[in-house]
């Protein structure tokens, strides 16, 4: 159900209030907003700026600097595949090519039915059981093509 700007404003106001007195509150606030909505709605930015006595440009600049913050909602499931060296040494490129082919999307994209978003990640700290992946926050080690297929089947893709 899409949220209207009024719903967003109410929730953002609550989040701003709970971060009152925090030193360097902007990242925790953006995380809390993304947690609440699944992304950082554009409508929230001026409100954050006013709450923290920053310019809109500053808040926009911070939000867009970090890979984690989304301007739009992700798919219902997020599959992250590690692209870093240790995973590459164990065939991560091959596995990633398989996942992209199977889903018909590239990095950072969401399947047309909104089921899966595919994200690259640089290191999950699972380098001794590479290649590594994460699906909806759950870690997966020694992933291969068959395991990708199984994970995608589990989430209905």
């Amino acid at each position: 159900m899409p949220l209207d700007d009024q719903d967003i404003a109410v929730r953002v106001e609550e989040i701003l209030a709970t971060h009152d007195g925090v030193e360097g509150p902007l990242l925790p606030i953006l995380h809390a907003i993304q947690e609440a909505f699944g992304y950082v709605p554009r409508a929230a930015l001026p409100q954050i700026a006013e709450g923290l006595n920053l310019s809109r440009a500053e808040v926009h600049g911070v939000m867009t600097f970090y890979h984690d913050f989304r301007e739009d909602p992700a798919g219902r499931h997020v599959l992250k595949l590690c692209r870093a060296e240790a995973c590459k040494s164990m065939g991560a490129d091959r596995v990633a090519a398989h996942a992209r082919g199977k889903l018909g999307i590239d990095w950072h994209e969401t399947t047309r039915d909104g089921t899966v978003t595919l994200e690259p990640v640089f290191c999950l700290g699972l380098c001794a059981c590479a290649p590594a992946a994460m699906i909806d926050g759950k870690v997966v080690g020694r992933i291969d093509e068959a395991r990708v297929d199984a994970l995608l089947t589990e989430v209905g893709k």
Partner: peptide, 12 residues
């Protein structure tokens, strides 16, 4: 912020 590939000591 242990971002280096092949490192997981901090996490562990």
């Amino acid at each position: 912020d242990e971002g280096d590939s092949a490192t997981f000591a901090d996490r562990m």
